[in-house]
Write a protein that binds this DNA or RNA. Sequence first.
DNA 1: TGCGCAACTGAACAGCTTGTACATTAATGG
DNA 2: CCATTAATGTACAAGCTGTTCAGTTGCGCA
Lengths: 202, 202
Amino acid sequence: MTKPPIDRRVARTRATLHQTLMSLIPKWGYEAITIRHICDAANVGRSTFYSHYTSKDDLMRSGIENLRQVLCDRQRDALATPGDIRDRSFGFSLTLFEHARDHIDLHRGLVGGGTVALGIIRQILADVVWDEFTATADKNSAVAVPRELVVQYVVGAYMAVLTWWLDRGAKLPPAEVDRMFRRLAIEGVLHAPHRPTGDQNG
Amino acid sequence: MTKPPIDRRVARTRATLHQTLMSLIPKWGYEAITIRHICDAANVGRSTFYSHYTSKDDLMRSGIENLRQVLCDRQRDALATPGDIRDRSFGFSLTLFEHARDHIDLHRGLVGGGTVALGIIRQILADVVWDEFTATADKNSAVAVPRELVVQYVVGAYMAVLTWWLDRGAKLPPAEVDRMFRRLAIEGVLHAPHRPTGDQNG
DNA sequence: TGCGCAACTGAACAGCTTGTACATTAATGG
DNA sequence: CCATTAATGTACAAGCTGTTCAGTTGCGCA
């Protein structure tokens, strides 16, 4: 896909910038980070930054692309496994919940007020879900709902649950919140009755 | 709730600022608007702005609060109407779709890249949905999914569908996209099969 | 009606950001 | 070993934010 850069200097510079951005997110939150911060922390000239990326979002985008590969692989595995469609659907969900738990500060820095970073992840998820629907296409479902709408529906719901889970300190185990999300997505809120809980949503 | 300000000057100033912000959104998009823009367009001193609001988001927040009242009223109507729970659920949905169609440029300016404006609406919807669940609480659903999770799930899914619908030019009639959303939310993706459509999601 | 007080004004300020340009220095790889 | 290419850092114009302050206007109460 992307041919490796010949010059070691550019590889080093880009890797440093990516790492630095990621290391800054837990403490500052994605939105609050400026290009100056990144360059200072990375010991890279600001003009150098602009010779590689056009913006902070650009850096983020190109750095997060490998997430797509991880999720696609996991999805292939899930779909290849025999069993009920209910168990094989939405293979990205558990993977991402677990990744979020393992890098919780990073993810909290991403969801805290940030649109762009979430938008990038959202797009990746949309592609993944689209592919999943393509793979499991139900031929005899004639006219119902545009697939793009369903994709946006699922991804939007998932991102909301993920954000909520992180904001609440990720107390539920990934496997459990994954199970809840999939139940809601697959069977709907009517078949997945909710239980009253103590406090209001904040 | 909020006692009306005595002095007509402050009422005038605040109203002008709100109107100006709303009038600027369709053309510039919420994120791109600066406090300078607002003050210039409103013919209000910038120091005056800061004596009323702390930020653009603050102005937005206090201006959009009446939306909550509209949605709450509509919800009360929907819940009071006798009939199947499937038809009475999520009364906010159609109301907001129709509002978006009627003020499409405003809404497109809100969803275009903006987190904060959407976050405010998201919070209002979360409160509304929470109240709806409280009103229609199912006693015998013992342990399933935390209600906050379901609320976030529904609101996240709805916002995603709304955004998608607007980004695509709001071609489907509000009643139809409303029907699709509710079907997905209530019955899940398994019972609401999707149909393949022409183009990939962008 | 008129007076006092609160609101509005406009300008100035320091501090921060973004992009771009350019001459200089350093490192790479053939 | 040396030409090529990357990195540096300094400087620049433009812009926004949030605060301060002296001066003006308009409101509302007596």
